[in-house]
């Protein structure tokens, strides 16, 4: 018997639990020649802010051992630009559309959320809480419990869509951050975002990225992400979407056993654009091999 892969996560129906991660798959059309979007559970589009945003100077990306460091700087066409240019394309496809949103202030987060509420074809909002809070000296919203709570509550107040805060990994107690999101109205959590990282050209002694530092993603962070997912799963009841260095079905299955209800493929889209499709196939094969009829049986199935 063919196992069923379809899930309902925070009210979002998906034909399988495999998504593509924000910032690694553009807004949909970019990979459409290579990947049939209708095969994917969901796309999380690249982060959207209230107004168009130009991002950082180049170089914006550098390959390192086991991954890459990026400092794109959240370049995006803004809410209106995104809806006008990309939503007609996305609406023609059969997959969940999750819009990643960000802001420089609490008010901006709230306003972006308000503008997406009721937009046809948008199934949920993922909140990037790893942005600098301009009014608080530039420290990241996602690194204190208080500002994390405020961002989640501000977005919650403005939308009826499911909201999915995307947690920063560089915190001392991931469970506490997961809990504060749950307590403030989050419907699910994405974890984790890229790790703060840096690379230096030893000949010039200059940072390789124009932004000096960036976020590390790729296989190097996968085992760290598994631990964070495992910890977060113990702290909350809401479903988790796990991402961090998935290159194969094995990596995805590991996340689900640790506690994730769904997974997102990120950096591996650059390496091998068909990775998400391979993960779906491999997940199905694993369920067959282990006599599981539903993919949900895997979730939180870790044996300690």
């Amino acid at each position: 018997m063919t196992p069923t892969l379809d899930i309902t996560l925070a009210g979002i129906q998906m034909k399988n639990p495999v998504m593509v991660a924000s910032g690694t798959f553009g807004y949909g059309p970019e990979y459409a020649d290579l990947v049939d979007l209708n095969q994917l559970g969901a796309i999380v589009v690249k982060g959207i802010s209230l107004e168009p945003w130009g991002g950082n100077k180049t170089p914006r990306m550098v390959e390192v051992s086991g991954g890459l460091i990026n400092a794109i700087g959240l370049q995006n066409p803004g809410v209106a630009g995104f809806i006008g240019k990309y939503m007609p394309f996305l609406r023609k496809h059969d997959l969940a559309v999750i819009v990643n949103i960000w802001g420089k202030t609490l008010e901006e987060y709230a306003e972006v959320a308000a503008q997406f509420d009721g937009v046809e074809g948008v199934h949920a909002l993922e909140i990037n809480i790893s942005c600098p809070n301009v009014k608080a000296g530039g420290s990241s919203f996602g690194t204190t419990l208080e500002s994390t709570a405020k961002v989640v509550a501000a977005v919650r107040a403005k939308t009826k869509l499911p909201i999915i805060p995307k947690l920063a990994p560089n915190v001392s107690d991931i469970g506490a951050f997961a809990k504060v999101c749950e307590d403030n109205g989050a419907d699910a959590l994405s974890l984790i975002n890229s790790f703060p990282a840096m690379a230096i050209d030893i000949e010039t002694r200059r940072p390789i990225l124009a932004n000096i530092s960036g976020g590390l993603s790729g296989p190097a962070i996968h085992p760290i992400a598994v631990k964070l997912v495992y910890e977060a799963a113990k702290a909350v009841k809401i479903p988790l979407i796990a991402l961090g260095g998935i290159t194969s079905a094995k990596d995805a299955i590991e996340f689900m056993i640790a506690g994730a209800s769904a997974v997102a493929v990120g950096t591996a889209n650059f390496t091998e654009p068909l990775t998400a499709l391979h993960v779906i196939d491999g997940l199905r094969d694993y369920l067959v091999r282990n006599n599981m009829s539903r993919v949900q049986e895997l979730v939180r199935s870790i044996r300690i």
Binding site: G23, T24, F25, G26, E30, Y31, L34, K46, G55, T58, P59, R60, M61, V62, L68, N70, I72, Q75, N269, F270, P273
Partner: peptide, 15 residues
Amino acid sequence: DRHMGCGVGACLACV
């Protein structure tokens, strides 16, 4: 010629 990431216009590294 610029350092590229995805090569297909998704990552915005080579602007």
